[in-house]
């Protein structure tokens, strides 16, 4: 499990950011609009089991705020607030079950998108929450959750993470 500000983590976050900007447009169309960088927050919560998930979310939010066409600060606020709640709920559920991971990742992504649409008009942005933009957020959440297993697999490969060994009581 790496440290938050290690070079490996920062490099991987920038790598995902570049993939989102340059490679994902090749596959994005219509209903399929995944954003890979957001998936690092659920990964930290489910796989690394960090209490520092919110701190990682701050780094991810700042990275996106520095590059994406938003008033500065919107992504940071949305990702950090949602990650904080994700971190709380993840401690109360079975983290290794994929159904739980899918559901919670989907809710995380949907919440981030909705929060951005609520905050952006307050900070002088151009977009606001309407049925059209809600549909775009929904598509983004569904398609990003869909690619979650692939991203988790690649991330585990990069960081050489192994599934924690479970210990069972064999003798009562």
């Amino acid at each position: 499990m790496p440290r938050l500000f290690s070079g490996r983590v920062i490099f991987y976050l920038i790598f995902l950011l570049v993939v989102d900007f340059c490679l994902m447009p090749l596959v994005r169309s219509g209903i399929f609009f995944p954003v890979l960088l957001y998936l690092m927050v659920p990964y930290a919560a489910f796989v690394w089991r960090w209490e520092k998930t919110t701190a990682l979310a701050l780094v991810i939010g700042l990275l996106r705020d520095l590059t994406v066409n938003h008033p500065f600060g919107i992504e940071t606020i949305a990702v950090v607030v949602t990650a904080h709640f994700l971190d709380i709920f993840v401690h109360k559920v079975e983290r290794d079950a994929w159904a739980v991971r899918f559901m919670m990742s989907f809710l995380f992504l949907l919440s981030v998108g909705m929060l951005i649409l609520v905050i952006e008009p307050m900070m002088g942005g151009r977009v606001f929450l309407s049925w059209g933009t809600f549909l775009e957020v929904f598509k983004m959440a569904v398609s990003t959750t869909f690619v979650m297993p692939v991203v988790f697999f690649c991330t585990a490969l990069f960081f050489r993470d192994r599934a924690p060994i479970r210990q069972y009581e064999l003798f009562g």
Binding site: D20, F21, V35, V68, N69, G132, E136
Partner: peptide
């Protein structure tokens, strides 16, 4: 063009 904004409701390029 070296990138496209990864926001579903924005169509901007870098």
């Amino acid at each position: 063009i070296i990138g496209r904004d990864p926001l579903p409701w924005q169509k901007t390029v870098i």
